[in-house]
Simulated assay, not measured.
Amino acid sequence: MQARISDGEAIFHKLVDLIPERNLLQDTRGVDVEQHVAIFMYAVSKNASNRDLQCRFQHSGETITPYRNRKGTLSQNVMVACNFDNQFKNVSAGWEGSASGARVLQDALQNNFYVPEGKYYLVDAGYASTPNFIAPYRNVRHHLQEQGRSNQRPQTPEELFNLRHAQLHNHVEQIIGVVKMHFQILKCASHHPIDSQADIVLACGALHNFIRSHEGSEQ
């Protein structure tokens, strides 16, 4: 009896077929595309060390990528824009952790991120409201926990708006939670070089979208 291929395996093989078609990666001596993808997927999903990867895939340290350094950990500010299909429309990564959200957004707008005409994005309280980006009202309850602690229904139009805004913001947090659940490397400080850290975030976002587009499970 032929074994049934799981949804995850089917999506993995679709990805393996797509990558060489797009000239993103080719077989190298001793490691084919399927192994390259498997190594990377295992690394980002388990936050595996170089040594762990060498042991699991039986390759030398020179073959296994990405590499880790010994310079300690760094943090980065990542801005994402999501749609109602639980996919990322934009991921801006690589900014130092102290960078303001407004600065990251401005840079994204100068580098291929745009808002379709007649549309807008909701942003959190760290941003200013503009015709294309709508933040919650300031000095008005805007977190779901604040609404819950008050133990009463919204009393003003501004409180009602902030409640609905918070509910949608919570949807975005759930999407991010799903990505972190799938890619454990995003849940803790990383020892990878900063350029690699930014690329890893972008790759995880792209992989998430690929899985979603092929109706992969969120669980």
Rank of each mutant, 00 (worst) to 15 (best):
E173D: 05
S60R: 11
Q35A: 04
Q26Y: 15
K180L: 03
K89S: 12
I211M: 13
G30C: 01
H143N: 09
W95T: 02
P20L: 10
H171K: 03
Q145A: 07
G94K: 09
K187I: 03
P131Q: 10
N47D: 15
M79W: 05
R164K: 04
Q76F: 04
R103G: 10
D7T: 15
H13A: 12
L186F: 11
A38T: 06
H165A: 08
G205T: 01
K71F: 14
H171A: 09
D27N: 15
T130E: 05
N139Q: 14
H192G: 01
F210C: 05
H171V: 10
Q155P: 00
E218L: 15
Y121S: 07
E218M: 14
D7G: 13
D124P: 06
L109S: 05
N69C: 12
V31R: 02
S129K: 09
H142V: 08
H169F: 06
L15D: 02
A99N: 02
V201I: 14
S75C: 13
G72S: 12
Y127L: 05
M79P: 01
M181D: 05
A125R: 12
L168D: 04
H208P: 02
K14I: 14
D52S: 15
L18K: 08
P116A: 13
F113E: 02
K14Y: 12
S100C: 07
E9W: 04
E218D: 08
V37E: 04
Y121R: 07
A102Q: 11
R51Y: 11
D7F: 08
M1Q: 08
Y137Q: 13
F113C: 03
D32W: 04
P116C: 10
N50R: 02
Q110C: 13
N112T: 09
I64M: 05
A3C: 11
A128G: 13
G8H: 13
Q147P: 00
R4M: 12
P131D: 11
Q54E: 11
Q174Y: 09
Q54I: 02
Q152F: 02
S150A: 15
C82S: 09
V140W: 05
H208Q: 02
Y42D: 03
L160D: 10
I175K: 01
F210E: 00
D32P: 01
S6G: 15
V178P: 02
N47H: 13
R141M: 09
G72K: 12
V80C: 12
I11D: 04
Q174I: 13
E218W: 06
A43W: 00
V80P: 00
A43M: 11
I175A: 03
L202V: 14
K187C: 12
L168V: 09
R22C: 11
V31Y: 02
I185A: 06
K71S: 14
I11L: 11
R56W: 00
Y120A: 11
H191R: 13
V104Y: 06
L186I: 09
H36D: 00
H171D: 09
I64S: 01
E117S: 10
E218H: 12
V123Q: 01
F88P: 03
A189R: 14
F210K: 06
T65R: 13
N111T: 15
P193E: 07
E34V: 04
S196W: 03
S92N: 01
V115A: 00
R70M: 07
V91E: 00
P193L: 14
P154C: 10
E215C: 09
D32S: 06
Q152A: 07
V115F: 06
L74E: 12
A198G: 07
F161S: 04
